[in-house]
């Protein structure tokens, strides 16, 4: 039944969506803020040093 072919991709689509959401969450919550934190700390201790 060829009309059911699109439904074969539901599995892939849902997983892609899940992975994307997870990645966005992890990056925005933990990984990218850590870089800001690292830069700010570096800037801060260098200011202290000078």
């Amino acid at each position: 039944m060829p009309q059911l072919v699109p439904y074969f991709f539901v599995n892939q689509i849902s997983f892609t969506f899940f992975v994307l959401v997870t990645l966005i969450f992890l990056f925005s919550r933990y990984i990218l803020p850590y870089f800001v934190y690292l830069s700010l700390t570096r800037y801060y201790i260098t200011t202290l040093n000078s």
Binding site: L32, P33, V36, Y37, L40, Y43
Partner: peptide, 14 residues
């Protein structure tokens, strides 16, 4: 705290 506020405001550079 500064990092939190910066991220909330969408500022990603120092």
């Amino acid at each position: 705290e500064t990092v939190k506020t910066m991220v909330k405001k969408g500022k990603w550079t120092i």
